[in-house]
Write a protein that binds this DNA or RNA. Structure first.
Ligand code: MN
Ligand code: MN
Ligand code: ZN
Ligand code: ZN
Lengths: 122, 122
DNA sequence: ATTGAAATGCAAATGATTTGCATTCTCAAG
DNA sequence: CTTGAGAATGCAAATCATTTGCATTTCAAT
C-alpha cells in the first residue's frame, strides 16, 4: 500500500489545478473528505515521492503544486496573494554554484515580493 | 521613542553579523537580555523601517539580515543549514515582470534547495 | 513633577503542521 | 476463505515559531 485512494485523489486535484493550492484548499476541494491529518500526510508522501513540490512564503500556509510544473511567484506582502510566472533564469546560476560550493542542487525557489495590483495605491 | 536601546542593540548585532541570524540567535547574543517578545517586536519594527530583511525557508525559523546586504541562499533540505552567496540575476526578470504584471516589486527571494556538503552521500 | 504615548515583560493565544496512539484497512501467505 | 502483519487513517493532543492582550514601566515633552 502506498499510493492510496486519498493520495491519488489529492494528487489529481493538484495536477488538475492551474495554480498552487494550500492544504486547506485541497482539503475543501476533495469531495470524499479525508481527515485533515491524512491530507497533510498525503502531501508529505507525494512530496517525498517527488510528485509534488511546495513553497512557503513569509507567513501563511505552504502552497503545493505538481512537479510537472515549474513556477515562480509574485508574493504580495500586504494581502498575501500569490501570482505565478514561469520564466526561469536559475540555470545560469547553477553553474556558478557548482563551481563555488560543494552543494548538490535539487531545486530552487524564486519569487518577487511587493504589492499586487489591489494593494499598491493609485 | 522609536529606535530604543534594545532595538539599536539588535540592529547592531544584525549589522555586525557576517551571516543571517534567527530571532533566537539574536536573543542569545544580546548580553542585556531583553524579553523574547521584545526581540520579536524589535525585529518587526526594524523590518518595517527597512533596516533589516528576513527570509523563511520550508521549515524552521526566519533569518534576519541587514538591508545593506544582499543575500541569496543554499538551503539544505536535510539538515536545514544555510549558506549564502551574493550573485544576483533578478534584475533581468524585473523588466519582464514590469511588462507583464501590474505588480510593484520591492524585493525578491531566491535560494537553491539541495544537500549540503555534509548531507550529500559520498 | 506631571502626563500620555510608546515600549516592555509575562503569560496565554495563535496558526500551520506534526505526532501518538487506538482503530481500520489491505493484501500476500497459509 | 481466513489470518496477520504492516500500512494508512482518524482523532485529539502536542509542537514550534511567532504574536497578542494586558498590566507595568519608561521617556520625552510640557
Ligand atoms: Mn526556476
Ligand atoms: Mn538578488
Ligand atoms: Zn495584495
Ligand atoms: Zn545538510
Amino acid at each position: 500500500m502506498e499510493l492510496t485512494k486519498w493520495r491519488e485523489e489529492i494528487l489529481k486535484i493538484i495536477e488538475k489545478s492551474k495554480k498552487p493550492l494550500t492544504a486547506e484548499e485541497i482539503y475543501k476541494i476533495n469531495k470524499f473528505k479525508p481527515n485533515f491529518s491524512t491530507v497533510y500526510r498525503a502531501l508529505k508522501f507525494l512530496e517525498e515521492k517527488n510528485l509534488i513540490k511546495s513553497i512557503s512564503f513569509d507567513k501563511g500556509p505552504k502552497y503545493f503544486y505538481s512537479s510537472k510544473k515549474h513556477y515562480h511567484f509574485l508574493y504580495c506582502t500586504n494581502c498575501g496573494k500569490i501570482e505565478v510566472f514561469n520564466k526561469c533564469i536559475a540555470s545560469q546560476l547553477e553553474n556558478f554554484i557548482y563551481k563555488n560550493f560543494k552543494f548538490q542542487i535539487t531545486d530552487h525557489v524564486f519569487y518577487f515580493k511587493g504589492l499586487c495590483e489591489n494593494c499598491k495605491e493609485g
